[in-house]
Design a protein around this nucleic acid. Structure first.
Length: 511
DNA sequence: ATAGGGTTAG
């Protein structure tokens, strides 16, 4: 046990010094906070005002100042500063400063080192994180549940799911540390994100029986994951169970289930759930409303979506860009491009800035309507509004060009997008291949199949079905059959959707 | 008295 008197002496010393000396730092900072401190002569040690830091450079400057201060600021102050840099997501900067601290002999403690471990983890270098763990022992510090929790998160971030699980279990089995709610959440969230929902589910049940009860975040995470895995009824059961355990769901919990139910068009259940939310005196937020608007739109139920928007406005929740994007998409789906355009045009009047997604959605709409000219006009307009293209926008435009049979334009566009550092993804290649096949350029399509493979984009079942379909339409049934056999070797269970085009052609041929 | 933790869009 370290002497608490030492701590007091240290504190008293720091308070006295900083009370009498004008910190050079105050020159760097806005004076507001310092004034209020001056009026409290007996206030505890004021520390350093970090509120004036808005950018990394400010933080690095302050760090240099702190190095020059005498007496040197405590490890707590340095730790606060490092943490601030981490909050700005400047992990490598934080690591560099930590390195400097070590070289200059500035003291660090378990808090500082945990921040450093976190930095390495967030940079996907959990191995370095474990190296820092080693230095804990060298320095005589005990890693605690926070340190271990950070490392577990790092393992998950590095896709070392099994290692994470093993490490966690080892900590428990050897009673190296008592888990807390944050640690359990880290494990449960990591498992869910890695697709191990059922393991997470079991763990949740297990910890439900211990003294360290999973909190609302844990339940919400598993419920959300169950919904995404299409196990909505299990999610509903778990929702009931958490309430039974005395843990109140939040609107986030409910919104996950609402979305899960919407995905199955279980409108009656959605309605019941909305009623339950109201009974629990929880008000729907913009996200939940958007889930509803989007769900109705995706089903082509634009009238219902309009009603939801109406209700949200009655409740003083302003539709946002996401709401508008959903409505635009909905109108497009039912062929009402003019209404979609109206929503788009109304956005700026509502104080909403169309996002690149708004543009993509509308571009897609015009392409589907065969109005590539207007689509192209919008495409050119987006960067003028300060928006950056993303791959999806370009893929949509690419599709539009090929739909109109403009293969040469499509191929040029495909080249141009790469010149603009937009890396084609699987969807882009599939779109390109489909465009070429539709326009009878099978050989060209196959050359891009090889290009995509060379660039590390693995063709999926859609890619093959596009090619098989293209070959069939072109009368090259033998090649199609060979490709189909390759497909069977790669995918054990191709769905009917993919087999069907081939089947149709073979049947036709045999007749 | 400084560190680790969930939800929404084409």
């Amino acid at each position: 046990m370290r002497s608490s008197t030492m701590v007091l002496v240290h504190r008293g010393f720091a308070a006295q010094k900083s009370g009498t000396l004008a910190h050079p730092i105050s020159l760097l900072c806005s004076s507001f906070h310092n004034h209020s401190r001056k009026n409290r002569p007996f206030s505890p040690k004021p520390g350093i005002d970090f509120s004036c830091i808005h950018e990394v450079d400010d933080a690095v400057c302050l760090f240099r100042e702190m190095l020059r201060m005498r007496p040197q600021p405590s490890v707590v102050q340095f730790t606060k500063l490092l943490n601030g840099i981490v909050k700005m997501k400047q992990y490598s900067v934080a690591l560099k400063l930590f390195d400097e601290m070590l070289q200059l002999g500035v003291p660090v403690d378990e808090y500082t080192m945990t921040i450093v471990i976190n930095c390495y983890c967030l940079l996907n270098r959990v191995d370095f994180g474990f190296a820092i763990l080693g230095s804990f022992f060298k320095r005589g510090y005990e890693p605690n549940v926070t340190t271990f929790g950070t490392l577990i998160k790092g393992l998950f971030l590095d896709d070392k799911v099994i290692d994470a699980e093993k490490f966690f279990k080892k900590l428990l089995a050897r009673k190296i540390c008592e888990p807390n709610q944050a640690m359990i959440l880290t494990v449960i969230n990591g498992l869910c994100k890695a697709g191990h929902t059922l393991t997470a589910y079991d763990l949740l049940g297990l910890f439900g029986k211990t003294s360290c009860k999973p909190d609302v975040f844990c339940y919400t995470t598993v419920i959300d994951s169950l919904c995404k895995d299409r196990m909505v009824d299990d999610a509903l059961q778990l929702l009931a169970k958490m309430i039974e355990q005395g843990i109140s769901p939040t609107i986030v919990t409910y919104s996950s289930v609402v979305k899960g139910l919407c995905n199955f068009s279980r409108w009656k259940d959605v309605k019941d759930l909305i009623k339950e939310i109201a009974d629990h005196k929880i008000s729907l937020d913009v996200i939940t409303f958007n889930i509803l608007v989007d769900a109705f739109c995706m089903e082509g139920m634009v009238k219902e979506a309009e009603d939801v928007v109406e209700i949200m406005m009655q409740r003083n929740i302003s539709p946002d860009t996401v709401t508008c994007n959903a409505m635009i998409d909905g109108y497009i789906l039912v062929g009402q491009i003019d209404k979609a355009r109206k929503v788009f045009d109304s956005m700026s009047g509502r104080g909403l800035k169309p996002s690149i997604i708004s543009y993509s959605t509308l571009i897609n709409g015009y392409c589907k309507k065969g109005n590539v000219e207007e689509a192209w006009r919008l495409f050119l307009e987006a960067p003028c509004k300060g928006l950056d293209y993303d791959v999806a926008t370009c893929t949509t435009m690419l599709q539009g060009l090929f739909r109109e049979g403009r293969c040469a334009d499509g191929l040029k566009f495909f080249k141009d997008m790469q010149a603009h550092q937009l890396i084609p993804n699987l969807v882009t290649y599939n779109t390109l291949l489909k465009g070429l096949c539709m326009n009878k350029q099978i050989a060209e399509a196959f050359s891009f199949l090889h290009i995509m493979e060379d660039r590390g984009v693995s063709p999926d079942i859609t890619t093959y079905s596009i090619l098989i379909h293209g070959l069939c339409k072109d009368g090259k049934l033998e090649i199609a059959r060979n490709l189909f056999n390759t497909l069977l070797q790669k995918v054990c269970n191709p769905t009917f959707k993919y087999i069907q085009p081939l089947l149709v052609h073979f049947v036709k041929k045999d007749l």
